[in-house]
Amino acid sequence: MISRKDVEHIAELADIGLAPEEVEEFTHQFNLILDYFEILDQLPAEGGWTRTDTEDLNVMREDLVVPSLPQHEAIMNASAREDGFIKAPRVM
């Protein structure tokens, strides 16, 4: 069972703000969805990723310098810019 507190904690981990009524709604819906996912409990814990079509695993190439977007185009969608840089909220 997922509680309201769990939903609030997950929202925090995911950096998603929720309105109080969304917390209520999601708690109910998450329980229904996770109940459905319980079918996965029937599977063994081992195995997985046993690819049979191995012809195209990890194709490697040499690094290659190619033209990229000019700086002004790369940052043109940023909401705040300063001296050719993107401005972001403070981390500390």
Binding site: V7, I10, A11, L13, A14, I16, L18, E22, F26, Q29, F30, I33, L34
Partner: peptide, 8 residues
């Protein structure tokens, strides 16, 4: 929001 949270 649901999918990002359930994926998290």
């Amino acid at each position: 929001k649901r999918r990002v949270m359930l994926g998290t």
